[in-house]
């Protein structure tokens, strides 16, 4: 019983950054902007959250700084792809590389280190799991992360903004002819994706009380895989995140036994993404205007 609870708790903790990033990525992708950038937004968010917490001593201010860092990167991506019509994939890769470079540079500049920052104020001690509820409430970003999926689903399916996002990502000209500004909707959607993915990054840094170089470690891509596996629906993408996190937890818990090589477990999200893309779990139809002007 306690083993099952510990498994569940660890799964949720691992899932939180995926949930944030996938929730943000769904918004941008449904608006027609490819979310390869989630990885960069997370890394930037982790670093700026750590820096905010380091300078202010408050993890809350750290989290806000994380959001600001993610939004800044997102706006850069939005300006290049929406205003200047740059190729979304190329701009996305550039944003990811930029995030790596910038965080390394400032890590060296502020902390004179090429691997990690000093210890900063964070949300949890990150040691004992304790009781399930207590352990999860210890870090307020965990309940936020679990709530963000229903919030984004509500935003997407029940509000005018969400309706416009769905229209803009499928048939931008149709939206234009009824007076909806495609650019404005896309700017907001990309900025929100930056904010949410950065919160996922902030969670990593504030959970570990420090920033380490490259600490997003591919989580943004796993979130993107969850979006595709979830067929661009926030709830299904959230379930995919939980599933990927459970697989990762299993791998950690089985590590002692060496039952399955950990590399195979790490492949699961990507293998499932390919499975989804070739249509084995129902047809994965991206928004029609994804990646186009």
């Amino acid at each position: 019983m306690s083993l099952a609870l510990a498994f569940l708790a660890q799964t949720l903790r691992i899932a939180v950054p995926y949930l944030f990033a996938a929730a943000g990525g769904v918004l941008a992708e449904r608006a027609g902007i490819i979310s390869l950038t989630l990885e960069g937004f997370m890394l930037g968010g982790a670093f700026s959250a750590m820096l905010g917490s380091y300078w202010s001593g408050s993890p809350w201010i750290g989290a806000l700084c994380g959001i600001a860092g993610g939004v800044a990167l997102a706006l850069l991506h939005a300006v290049s792809t929406i205003r200047f019509k740059a190729d979304q994939v190329v701009s996305g890769i550039a944003i990811n590389l930029l995030a790596v470079g910038l965080t390394r540079y400032f890590l060296k500049l502020v902390f004179d280190s090429s691997s990690n920052s000093l210890r900063v104020a964070g949300f949890s001690a990150g040691t004992s799991t304790g009781s399930l509820i207590g352990g999860l409430l210890h870090n307020p970003l965990i309940p936020f992360g679990l709530l963000i999926i229903p919030v984004v689903a509500w935003l997407l399916y029940r509000t005018p903004f969400g309706l416009r996002v769905r229209a803009v990502g499928e048939h931008p000209e149709a939206a234009t002819t009824v007076g909806v500004s495609v650019k404005r909707v896309r700017y907001v959607a990309v900025a929100l994706s930056g904010a949410l993915a950065a919160l996922g990054g902030a969670y990593l840094a504030l959970d570990q009380h420090q920033f380490t170089d490259g600490m997003s470690a591919g989580r943004g891509f796993i979130a993107l895989a969850a979006i595709i596996f979830g067929r661009w629906d926030p709830v299904r993408a959230g379930i995919a995140c939980l599933f990927f996190a459970a697989a990762e937890t299993l791998q950690i818990q089985l590590q002692g036994m060496q039952a399955i090589p950990s590399q195979f477990v790490q492949m699961i999200p990507y293998v499932l993404t390919i499975v989804a893309l070739v249509g084995l779990v129902g047809r994965a139809m991206p928004p029609a205007a994804l990646g186009r002007e």
Binding site: P160, L163, R164, E170
Partner: peptide, 19 residues
């Protein structure tokens, strides 16, 4: 060329922009 979003319902298409 119809300016309709195929993945939205009739009602959603009609109210888009003035919900």
């Amino acid at each position: 060329h119809f300016m309709l979003v195929p993945t939205l319902t009739i009602a959603e298409n009609v109210i888009l922009g003035r919900e």
